[in-house]
Amino acid sequence: MLALHDVRVFYGAIEAVKGISFEVRQGELVTIVGANGAGKTTTLRTISGIYRPATGSITFEGQDLTALPSHEIVALGISQSPEGRLIFGSLSVRDNLMLGATRRADRATIPEDLDYIFSLFPVLGERINQSGGTLSGGEQQMLAIGRALMARPRLLLLDEPSLGLAPMLVNRIFAVISRLKETGVTILLVEQNARKALEVADRAYVMETGHIILEGDARSLATNPEIKKAYLGG
C-alpha cells in the first residue's frame, strides 16, 4: 500500500533521515519505534508532504507522492494525527473535526462519521462546542485522532499518540488504535513507548539516528533481547 525506498530528508545541512526503505501493507498496523531524534516524526511528515525528501521515492498504491502537495496526499487517503496533537486551540471541537473533513468528497456522510468519532471518544461529544484549547491533554489527543479520522483515511498516520499522557489514558488511546485496526484502517504508528506499540502492532521497524536498524514482526521484536535492553527497560 505504502512503500518508501531510500528516502533521505535534510533540514538545511543536517540529514535527519538517512536513506530508509520500508513498506506498509493493506490492513496492517505497522509501528516505527525509536528514541528521540531518530527521525520518526520527520519520516511521517515527509509521507504527508509537509517535508520533501531529497532523494528516494514514496509511493501510495503505486502513485508517487514525492511531488504532490500535502492536501492532495490527504485527498488520496492519507491523514495524520501529528506529534504534540497540534489541535486548533481557538476553534471549537466541532470545527476541529470538520477541518479534518476538508478534503472529503462525500460530504453527506460527515454527520455519520461525527457520530462514529463520538462513539470512539464520548468525551468529545460532550465538549463539542468547547474550544480545543480548553481540553485536557488526553482529550486533545483524542481530538487529534478524531480529526485525522474525519478524512476517512485508508492510511492513518499516528505520531506519538501517547506522548505526555497518564498511563490510564495511554491504555485508552491504544485500545482505540486496536479497534481502528479491526475496522480495516491501515495504520502507521510512530511511538517512543515501544512496549505498548509492539503490543498492538503487526510489524515493527526500529529507527536510530536516521536509519532503520531492525525490522520484523512485532511479537518477535518484543522478545528480542537487544530491543528489550534498549527500549523496553530490560
Binding site: R45, S48, H71, Q80, L86, G100, R103
Partner: peptide, 21 residues
C-alpha cells in the same frame, strides 16, 4: 474561514489533514 484560522494556528497540523494553505 475555518481553514483560514487553522492555517494561522498551525501549518503542520493543517497540512497533515489536508487544508490547502
Amino acid at each position: 474561514g475555518r481553514s483560514m484560522i487553522a492555517s494561522r494556528e498551525n501549518l503542520i497540523a493543517s497540512r497533515g489533514i489536508g487544508v490547502n494553505v
